[in-house]
Design a protein around this nucleic acid. Sequence first.
DNA 1: TATTGTTATACTCTATAACTATA
DNA 2: TATAGTTATAGAGTATAACAATA
Lengths: 164, 164
Amino acid sequence: MSGTNGSGRQRRGRNGEGVAESVKFGPLALWIGFNLRMAQEAAFEAFSRRSLEIGESPGRFATLTLIARNPGISQTELSHAAGRDKSSLTPVVEDLVRRGLVERNRMDTDRRAYRLNLTAEGKKTLTQLTRCARRHERNLDRIIGMRDRKRFLALLKKIAAEIE
Amino acid sequence: MSGTNGSGRQRRGRNGEGVAESVKFGPLALWIGFNLRMAQEAAFEAFSRRSLEIGESPGRFATLTLIARNPGISQTELSHAAGRDKSSLTPVVEDLVRRGLVERNRMDTDRRAYRLNLTAEGKKTLTQLTRCARRHERNLDRIIGMRDRKRFLALLKKIAAEIE
DNA sequence: TATTGTTATACTCTATAACTATA
DNA sequence: TATAGTTATAGAGTATAACAATA
């Protein structure tokens, strides 16, 4: 979830085309790291726009999905899955509970922890967000092409798993 | 520059492996958008660590490179190239000037604007950062493999250029 | 009037550290 | 002592709007 913010970013200047007076990107243009970032930012922004159309922040999508797929997950487990500190999740969960999308129940076995679950409302919202995400994915699939999709996805996973 | 922040992120939970009790990622695991993000965050974090070793924030790299490659560029042009609002660049440039990496000179032709250039010190710092970036790139190249590199890079550019 | 860069302000996402209430 | 979650606080990066100087 998140990382890059969620507010309205303006269109960014890809490789010089369209940008005032053809700015030179030098070696940046050839580097995986730089282009990975540009691609991610552009994609995130596009998804962000779609989410905002249904009044949701894009960052909520991953959180809701993780709760939906792991009913009764604790906040600490959730924070590990999302790769964030538990304290970062407090306001997020609080917001979801306040808006009636997620319910929290103390565990019987460990009264310190909560079980998180989606409410009916939360499931409805997740369905809508999933629809957004699917349209977004179709768009990405179209750009990548089905011939390369599998390989491309595998490489993204490989980077996340093996970097450093 | 930036997008995702630059401070010390903890290790994120890739696809469930290593994460407490195998959290299920559901459809997320199959989606380009999600994996693009995970890959970018992991890669950025790795580069961030390398930059921090030489006492620089990772975000400065793109800024310094853009100035180096476009000597005398104005702040507004720079902000367009970086895809950020001009006001976002004020504190960045200010920091670079304060630390003696960048010099600013009023343009003769337009007394409102500044020409930005690297100082000798700035060039030295950029050289160091470039060295970090190259090591980082070699790491990414190793992960991706030279057979797929070109195609992978092309697809990243295509996403940035064509998304929505 | 329009543009360059600054200032004031605010927002999002994130982290660390200290705290509480349990365990 | 250790862990789950909260609170307090901070920081990076970004944006919008209003402004002064200049065009």
